[in-house]
Write a protein that binds this DNA or RNA. Structure first.
Lengths: 186, 186, 186, 186
DNA sequence: TATGAATGAGCCTTCATTCAT
DNA sequence: CATGAATGAAGGCTCATTCAT
């Protein structure tokens, strides 16, 4: 009465699966948002659900793995000597235009790991802010929290905007924030 | 085929139930967002699921009933002769601090009824914008779409911010938008 | 806090409601079959659901009231001196082409009242059969049960055939049964 | 968000469940017709509803699995060199006496998969008809559509006949159709 | 007596999570 | 260590039936 199994390729492709899961999750999160069914991730990665759970015991673990790259990209940006806050806005907007789920998570999850990503992002913002203020591009009264809030608002908005309208909204929002942050009297 | 019953207190409280449903929905939406389970609304209203569906055949019908009040409050605000865009921001922030779901719906639903609420809100924004620009309080370059975008960002952000931090975020955001919209050279 | 009611026209239109319910049920059964929601009947009759239940405590009671007319039409047919079994087939087919639910009920319900209608229908069949056999139009070996079975099959089939194809199926089926019942060697 | 669990005996009986579901569905369809609640199938198979949906994503998928055997049996019958239309009627009757739902589905579903079964059944009928006509057992005027109609009527009727009376009805119906299809003058 | 709101059982469907192989 | 089937808890929705007014 029992069964028939497929094949068990053994532990050969151990971390290959992990990578496949991350890639699949990136796509799935981008298409269907942070709350997309995890089974869809496993399916797209051609991996058993069990393996998904072994590598990433919960949704956040998976999301953190996915979004670490995004944050790293921002950090890299901050290290360029000529990057500005405007670049940061643009980068974030770019990321969110492509995938909505990072901000979904950063804003809504109280989980340690999500907050860690948020912290790294804040550091990026603070670094760029200081540099811009030094060079008189941004008003001295602006605080890092303002920048993070602006980023949060930008991203949160874009994350709920239909894909087709995201670009336009991003442009308009960027103009608003630039106006808000530019120094007053020349 | 028949069904067993427990008690049936009858339709004595006909529209009282309707009111209870709206009140419950306001709370549930505030706590859990626009996608909160409707069964939770029925439960909190102490009402059968069937009654909920009789009164409000779908989620949007319920939401519209809940949020009509909010929009009406904004319209009333716009009619006061001395109200300003800042007042509008504050009102929206106030509302969103209390309940998150109105903007959830306005941003994400393409439904006629949701768009009707959005339209009314836009009208309020446009009226106040015109008045503020006449009196030199807001730069002439600002367009209604900018105002709506700002409101959307504000609300979208607050809607994902944990309740405890909403007030602070709202204050900071208001300052940002004021800075962005104020006229430049005096 | 309580209520507002509509109007209560009193017991003025007592049996008018009953008639409206029967008419509405005839339409609803025709459109949606024997298992159509009773609430749809009440709605179409512009009558409260309670009234429906007062007049017809269950689905069968309502159906019997509706279909009594159909059976009566068949009985009237049988009383015409020149009517034949073929006429009966045609009449049943006609009725079923229009509304499917009578046979649904006769075949599937074991309820007394449904069987009463079946009995009357059988009497009609027997009368016509006897007459046809007297005149040599139908083989002497055919029994009333054969006729009822043929009617049942015809009707049961039509009741499940998409409306557009019913006419064609009815014609073909009639030919089959005629071939089956005609006397053999002339 | 998580879920509580009782026991999980694992997927040891993987395809055993599938078989149990088919068996259960055969019984449930036989007892309650094609529209019987799928939850009843899961319950009778002692299987979670989720498993039912995994194996058979919709009602038709389940029905096709159940009825494929039936059609296969008919096809096998047609391949026997000495089988006749009468055998086909008897086989169909036999099957329908046991389970009602096959014809329910073939008649009422416009779904691809249901029509595929219908097509196979028609092929069987046409093959047997040709052979019977060759050997003079069936009138040359009879067309495959007549046979299918007869089968449809037979099955449709039986499908609505209480189990106890099915055998008798089947016998009588077979006699009728034989009479209808036999060649006329010897 | 008529009304129509309220009830709640039950069906369908989706998913997170577990676990035998 | 990977697999993928099994589980069952929700949630959405529909309807038959009751009952205060």
């Amino acid at each position: 009465m029992p069964t028939k199994r497929k094949v068990n390729l053994g532990p050969s492709a151990g971390p290959a699966n992990r990578a496949a899961l991350i890639a699949a999750a990136r796509e799935v999160f981008a298409e269907s948002g942070f709350m997309a069914p995890l089974s869809a991730v496993a399916r797209r990665a051609q991996v058993g659900q069990g393996s998904l759970y072994r590598h990433f015991p919960d949704r956040i673990a998976l999301a953190v793995a996915v979004f670490d790259d995004n944050i790293t990209a921002l950090e890299t940006l901050a290290e360029l000597s000529d990057s500005t806050l405007v670049d940061l806005f643009d980068s974030v907007a770019q990321q969110v235009i492509a995938s909505t789920a990072l901000i979904d998570m950063i804003i809504s999850e109280r989980d340690q790991r999500a907050e860690h990503l948020a912290t790294r992002m804040t550091a990026v913002a603070a670094a760029l802010l200081a540099r811009d203020q030094d060079q008189g591009r941004i008003a001295a009264t602006v605080e890092p929290a303002d920048v993070m809030l602006a980023i949060g608002m930008l991203a949160s908005l874009l994350s709920r905007t239909p894909v087709a309208e995201r670009m336009e909204s991003a442009t308009r929002a960027r103009a608003i924030f630039r106006a808000a942050f530019v120094p007053r009297a020349p």
